[in-house]
Design a protein around this nucleic acid. Sequence first.
DNA 1: ATAACTATCGGGAACGTTTGCGGAGACGTT
DNA 2: AACGTCTCCGCAAACGTTCCCGATAGTTAT
Lengths: 389, 389
Amino acid sequence: MVRCVKCEQVDGIMKAGYVRGLQRYLCKSCNYYFTQSEKDESVLSLQRRKRHQTTIIDIARSLGVSNSTVSRALHDHADISPETRQAVLEKASQLDYQPNQLAYNLVKSKTNTIGLIVPEFHNPFFPNVIIGAHEVLTKAGYNLTIMQSNESYQVEISNAKAMLANRIDGLLISLTQETNNFDHLSVFEKRGIPLILFNRVCEQINVPKVVVNDFEASFQAVEHLILNGYERIAHLGGPLTLLVSQERLRGYRAAMLKHGKTIEDHMIIQGMLTQQKARIYGQYLLDLANRPDAIFAVNDSAAIEIMLMAKEKGISIPDELGVVGFSDNPESTYIGPGLTTVRQPTLEMGRITAEWILQIVDLEDVHLPEKKILNTELIVRGSSRRRGI
Amino acid sequence: MVRCVKCEQVDGIMKAGYVRGLQRYLCKSCNYYFTQSEKDESVLSLQRRKRHQTTIIDIARSLGVSNSTVSRALHDHADISPETRQAVLEKASQLDYQPNQLAYNLVKSKTNTIGLIVPEFHNPFFPNVIIGAHEVLTKAGYNLTIMQSNESYQVEISNAKAMLANRIDGLLISLTQETNNFDHLSVFEKRGIPLILFNRVCEQINVPKVVVNDFEASFQAVEHLILNGYERIAHLGGPLTLLVSQERLRGYRAAMLKHGKTIEDHMIIQGMLTQQKARIYGQYLLDLANRPDAIFAVNDSAAIEIMLMAKEKGISIPDELGVVGFSDNPESTYIGPGLTTVRQPTLEMGRITAEWILQIVDLEDVHLPEKKILNTELIVRGSSRRRGI
DNA sequence: ATAACTATCGGGAACGTTTGCGGAGACGTT
DNA sequence: AACGTCTCCGCAAACGTTCCCGATAGTTAT
């Protein structure tokens, strides 16, 4: 006994297939297709009510005012009477109202979130930058979404895409060593989303950048070695795809040149300095017939690896071998005679970058892309201080 | 010359005040209030078009199909012909379509984001946990939003509130040392948002927890000291508000008891071990008339501080003083004769916690709250290995 | 011919806010 | 009476998706 839901007739109803497992009917008289919904209404409403969060609408309804009024009352808008505001606020806390940020985000097309993409987490460098940035952003009421590209260009692209989809208000990024195409970043410019490069920057794209004075730092470090009487200084550098590595190499060369030292190509090794690689390169350098009397490594973990190997081989530090690192990891204070290293203002870099992006975000204005260069500090410890000199 | 926008009459139009700086009129004949909008239509449309992101609607319109069709095509839904799908996909990439995650979030009431609240960033412990969790979540296509409570109960509450407003799909949290009320967490249960406590857990709330075997680790560490011939072992513990501290203290006591050592109350100091505090407590312990011959500290930085002070005072390690730390910070390998310490599986803790929450999020089911206890490892180095024994 | 099935598509509600604009009254001033 | 000013509030569009219900056509089985 089937009744047409439109003309309410019972005759002339024909079966007309199935749709999604439900019997479908056709009413011949009014030519109307329909299915018999077997859903229980109570079940439906229960399902709908499941885990309902109180909304502005709930407050409005229970107070007999409009949504606008509630919204305005909750935001201290001017067009609202003190009494109404009071009533709304009370009802809100009574119903345990929590604003739905998602709806807010959608309508404002703004998320109060800054994105941050870093290539790795293994050195303390980026975590520290994150701490600094996090501090500033939190204080300003912004959220921070962190992604990690794992030194992979492809991952970086997908990270950037995800950031875009999530409509972050601004992006802070440090590039991978593979990145040599920047289309995934130009998109942000095109969309008007502020973008700042830090530490691992590039020249091909015209946005604000925050870096340290890699050239000068490197120059100073190598000059320090030379002034301590070291002659044949090797350089363990990072991958040359990175501007940082290029700059540090440049600093090394400049210092050597200035003091008339010969630069031997086989004493310069560039590459990704994992612990394994550091050991391999160190082995090579220390086993050279005419082995270097000092090594300037581009990060502390590599420098420490060198120091450990030297100890194993009975090469005394700093007398027979001077070592200088880069970054001032915590362990550098404690190892052997202490590792001389270049301290980078990591927290400050995070803070400054974050403050800058907040400024740009708030400005909504065209911003002049400039480059901020932070100063490093050479921390001299035992590994490069020759007793005899 | 003003014309009523409703009845189009010119006569009988009266001025009727100002509204938002615009002249307001009243048409006597049709009794209609209105203002003359002075906005230029071209300006308006330009303003509207400003920075328009292509949406599903744009694709649909330019293809002459419906929104539903485009949405389905983009999601590999079954109800779509290969040709249509192809056309949609092409048009999408042609118009550089980027899905608006915000709209998705709103309609699905889901953000694909897991929240993470940690009390601090200064020790490598939490950053490492974050690395582990980040790895797992990223791989599963989830975002990670990190907040830091800075050891403040109030900040923790506001963090939790922000997480709630942002409709995270799940929360991982490590409590502050101040937290002794848990209403801000019960809310998550009430709302059906999965919640996992890790490391800094509590007993008052019935949710999944991930911790390390603090009691056993502590017991083992102290027993190790005893087996190396140390007799008068002091304990530098964390604040007793934390369960971790309580457990570690319990382990210390148990080991001392088992081996018949007397537990002297003045040799047990509990508190927040900042570097300054560690120095103060260390000073106190090392200057005691009957000073301890070993110290079990609850974190490595405190232990290292002790070692440095001992060196200053000319107390030899490990002969005159044994030291054991907790956490295995990187610097512990390199300091002095090496710091014996308890290695915590930080990365694993992050991974496991993240995997667990993903499981609960996917399950949508009632989950049995249980406790996962990860094993630590005692790393024996020079600071506790007595030569004579 | 009738019924069952498949494949493909559209309409439109729903998600929870914000906000532009207008309505309506109160009161004061010319 | 005519107008200016102010306060308080509601209507409804807009944000961009997803997805529930169908609708329609064509094909096959009975």
